[in-house]
Nucleic acid binder design. Structure first.
Lengths: 249, 249
DNA sequence: CACAGGCCTTGACTAACGTCAAGTCGGCGA
DNA sequence: TCGCCGACTTGACGTTAGTCAAGGCCTGTG
């Protein structure tokens, strides 16, 4: 598994993983969806033992199978969640961005990580000690509810993922991915791929070779590819091809 | 979509969905993992407006796209969670049994159902009004934590599902399914399929025809099929074939 | 400038799984 | 008992995506 086990340090398992927070960081963190609406004193409780981890691009945060000690929150940048197969095959289960909480499930239940995490851009990640958090949840109902909402959102993302994998073709999944990059609901759209094509391939569950070919398939539907720039001539046409109902898919 | 849209009543959307609880039912419900450890007075709060829904086999509980009004908890029997594609193709995302909570995510966030629910055996389902529950979560931290644990477990189930779909072949997924039916970790095992083969096929994401053929593939690994009875000659051999690490897969 | 190393693309081939169409088997009601 | 229906199996074939190999293109580096 090249590139995967070559990082010896698992931040998720280090007690001294990050630094304590500076005031400006504190302010930046208070604006995260998880914490907005939380009274300043409750925020202080929640962040009392929190630290901030700075990651370089492609740095591993932790490995599948390891044991969690922190709840992670993405403050900046993007984190890829990888599933690793028995022969070291990697697949990308999700790519998280600012505000997303991850491994809530592992951290709160004490079960081992089901996924590995790797920064796919330079990133900063807030670490909340799991044991402390479990106590805070009892004391701060608002925090518990925020965690529930985060977890609920993550759960729904996974359900969509399962449905897509079972009910859509590769071309449809790619189309859905492209559509997720544009706010436009009709007419023409120009989008830029935010990741390398191999990462996107792993994200939608195909090989890079297949991704190339799948882009060719979409060309007949008015999707032009030029490097990382994608021109969708008719968003509605692509939406129809993907049979995409945003709300429930 | 035969059999799916033919049930006009959506219990999930009816205010008078079930009956209030009898004492014996109350006791049966108090033993659910969601509620054990909850003090009797807190349990009374949580169940104050709860009702019990009795479902016949293959009765629809609600449809994908609908709007949730209740948190559902399986008290008895089994509930299939179905994803429905644009042409009416059905796939089974999960099959829930006693103790499992479902559509927590939809009920608590107020978003539409991502899945349809259908009883796959006669079943009883506890309905907790969503609005009431949201208030209770504030008042009863123990309840919030129980909900978090339930959601976390559900989330991890979905992550496993995604990893399996992306990293395992149909034969491996079937093997993993069979292994999930036996507590044995080595030697010989006899298991009985708890569902029809077409349901199992939808569960692991293949067609019924492919399931038949896949059973033939597993025969070479010492898996004998006789109706619903499955004999696994060597559990470890099958486990190795599936590259199955229970903990993290 | 040459060159190495990624990343992406393309082609030829293969494997896995789906589709369509019979056909079998067992259960159940008239 | 008969006949029907639904669930399952089997065969033939098609489609989709994976595999392997080669080559292009860009970028960073000596």
């Amino acid at each position: 598994m090249p590139g995967v086990i070559s990082y010896p340090i698992e931040h998720g398992n280090r007690a001294s993983a990050g630094r304590t927070l500076r005031p400006d960081e504190m302010a930046h963190i208070a604006e995260l969806p998880l914490f907005v609406g939380l009274a300043p004193d409750l925020l202080a409780i929640a962040l009392a033992e929190a630290t901030l981890l700075r990651c370089q691009c492609s740095e591993m945060l932790f490995h599948q199978g390891g044991h969690p000690h922190f709840l992670h929150v993405v403050v900046d940048g993007e984190i890829g969640m990888y599933g690793i197969g028995c022969e070291g095959e990697e697949t990308v289960v999700d790519i998280l961005k600012r505000g997303d909480i991850f491994i809530t499930a592992a951290a709160l239940t004490g079960r081992p990580y089901l996924m590995s995490a790797k920064a796919v851009s330079p990133a900063r990640v807030l670490l909340l000690p799991a044991e402390r958090l479990r106590r805070d949840l009892q004391a701060v109902p608002e925090l518990a509810i925020a965690i529930i909402c985060g977890l609920a959102t993550n759960f729904r993302t996974m359900v969509r993922e399962v449905k897509q994998l079972k009910l859509k073709t590769a071309a449809q999944r790619l189309g859905i991915y492209i559509l997720s990059l544009t706010p436009r609901r009709s007419g023409m759209a120009v989008v830029w791929l935010p990741h390398s094509k191999s990462l996107i391939a792993a994200r939608i569950g195909i090989r890079p070779e297949t991704l190339s070919r799948t882009f060719c398939t979409l060309r007949d539907l008015g999707v032009q590819v030029c490097g990382a720039k994608i021109i969708v001539e008719d968003v509605e046409c692509l939406t129809a091809f993907c049979s995409q109902d945003e709300e429930i898919m």
